[in-house]
Design a protein around this nucleic acid. Sequence first.
DNA 1: TTGATTTGTTAGTCATAACTAACTTTTTTA
DNA 2: TAAAAAAGTTAGTTATGACTAACAAATCAA
Lengths: 228, 228
Amino acid sequence: MTNKSNLNNLTKSEEDYLKALFQLLAEDHTVKVGNNQLAEYLKVSPASTNNMIKKLKAKHYVVSEKYGKLELTAEGQSIAVRLIRKHRLWETFLYNYLNFSWDEVHDVAEQLEHIKSYKLIDELDRFMDFPEKDPHGELIPNAKGEYKVIPKITLSSLEEGDVCRLIAVNDGSVNFLRFVSEIGLALSSKIKILEIREFDKSIRIQFDGTIETVTKKFADNVFVKKVI
Amino acid sequence: MTNKSNLNNLTKSEEDYLKALFQLLAEDHTVKVGNNQLAEYLKVSPASTNNMIKKLKAKHYVVSEKYGKLELTAEGQSIAVRLIRKHRLWETFLYNYLNFSWDEVHDVAEQLEHIKSYKLIDELDRFMDFPEKDPHGELIPNAKGEYKVIPKITLSSLEEGDVCRLIAVNDGSVNFLRFVSEIGLALSSKIKILEIREFDKSIRIQFDGTIETVTKKFADNVFVKKVI
DNA sequence: TTGATTTGTTAGTCATAACTAACTTTTTTA
DNA sequence: TAAAAAAGTTAGTTATGACTAACAAATCAA
Ligand SMILES: [Mn+2]
Ligand SMILES: [Mn+2]
Ligand SMILES: [Mn+2]
Ligand SMILES: [Mn+2]
């Protein structure tokens, strides 16, 4: 029987590395994730990552061969999913009950996700009546640790003439989220691709009667579902 | 002008030392607090405390002479009061909204009090409609940092025949709090001192028709206001 | 008032988690 | 396929915050 005591003994750092690795692996299930890629994602040196990975391997959360790619064990995945659940529930709480805007929630949730108490998070979930999505459109894993991913593609991957609906956004950058709101885009907005400029891949889009030109970098952070 | 940026840069440890020192000083305003007393309170070695006090003096949160007693600067006090405010607001939230019992809230609040966000705590305060007291009867400092103390005395300091009302309890021990509830005591209970046994200072009390004998140690952790 | 006890300080060690610099292995490309 | 580039590893350093052991100062008590 695996150890499921109320308080696991992971440090904030260990948790952050596991979550980051999970997200890199989940992002693109085909491509393998290496040490330096994880380092870059976490904005630490490759040496730091190498060190932490050693520790996580010793604790059986990560598996990898020397010079090989990184994988999470079932236990490692379970910890990561629990962190994502906590993160998204807190974001939802801040957004729905404490007047936080969607660009403000991520940084505080990044701290709150490390609070250790199963009761806290399950009661918070109940208090909010088991929300399905966080303020950025991402699905919240349930208490059983079921992690579903909505089939989503980036706005930048569409072609001229395509019509889609905004279903989620990357919540990492405050400036990006503010800009999304500023131009009038929101979750569920219906977007039409008018034109893709070959020169710099910038995209002319139409939504709610508005016409805007956005960069490829912007479109990479917008997740949509194709309609029609 | 003093530095009041949104995120102060104190570590969890620095915060805990400042809060502990404040509480020792507030507890008994006449008696001076020394290095080893603070160490014992925090359950760390005197050497650790000595080291941290050096750091807090360098940052101008603590003042003391070599081999002398410890004092907090105005800034040190302000940080401590903010922590107490956060701690008690979180306890109130857990108790009133998330079905935590009064013996469960303290440990989780001990973690939550270190989350850095002024907006978070002021919005939480507003969400709960500015509660005055935490689940253990302690007053919650307001956003201006005003720290009031209810005039309170321990149950153990009363004499035979005295009648009092339970206004607060020490929230440090889960077992103690459970026991308080178990015997049927709660905030506002009216208690009469029937007898104090000389031998071991145990106290026979009456409340709500119940008669119980409690130890001096128990009575030291119960705060009351004399009535009549 | 002087010796014992308490209180406070210093020095040195350990664990965690970051860093840089140097090195090795693997992969890519010419 | 051999040199170059990229990816990964190791060694050594730093900062924080614990610890113990040894020592010094202050206070208490006979
Ligand atoms: Mn987020
Ligand atoms: Mn985090
Ligand atoms: Mn408490
Ligand atoms: Mn604390």
